[in-house]
Design a protein around this nucleic acid. Sequence first.
DNA 1: AAGAAAGGTTAGCAGTCGCTAACGCATCTG
DNA 2: CAGATGCGTTAGCGACTGCTAACCTTTCTT
Lengths: 106, 106
Amino acid sequence: MVDLLEVATEPSRRRLLQLLAHGERTVTELSGEFAVSRSAISQHLLLLEGAGLVAARKEGRNRHYRLDRAGMNRLRGLFDAFWTSELDQLVADAQDTRPRHAQGES
Amino acid sequence: MVDLLEVATEPSRRRLLQLLAHGERTVTELSGEFAVSRSAISQHLLLLEGAGLVAARKEGRNRHYRLDRAGMNRLRGLFDAFWTSELDQLVADAQDTRPRHAQGES
DNA sequence: AAGAAAGGTTAGCAGTCGCTAACGCATCTG
DNA sequence: CAGATGCGTTAGCGACTGCTAACCTTTCTT
């Protein structure tokens, strides 16, 4: 089984998801945005499809990929589960901790 | 130079960050929570430290690791940048047309 | 019908990853 | 002091990853 967060985090796939956020795209269209081969992109898309993050609609000889709402929702849930309230608090502190806790970081 | 999101996403490191959200921990304490060797955890921690997500305080022969607020804030920023408004819209839509296997609203 | 175009499939390869084992170096304790 | 403890370091290994190249099928075009 695959780790949804890891699948979505890989740079090329992350970018694919962002591109697909603008709407449906074919494999060839998507490949045009990358330096790597169409085959590489195809494999990324199949992986994303297997993870349930994207879905494809076949139309003639084209495959139109789109984001899968449910899958992306699950991804969001996983991130939210990771980003617990403790982390929220820590990051909130980082915003205005200048005066009191001047913890040295560069 | 490392991809912050990928560094933070790896399952063991993700868990380390969550454990550290509760406060400072030494390497040995943290290792106790994992099935793998102390060396493996140490290497994960050094990677996280290199990425600026955690910091260590030396006290005697112990090293107390803690989350780095600024680093975690950068991580949050990266995720927010990925999760564009388009994605927000898509996931919002998924709430209505929710398929029968949904999970993860808080 | 013949060729072009879209795209999935497979083999194979180089690079990376996470891990363990063994070690070295401090630091603490009896 | 000698031994134990905490922890980083290094070498090496098996597994995995992302990639390309070549191929095959299906569909469109002329």
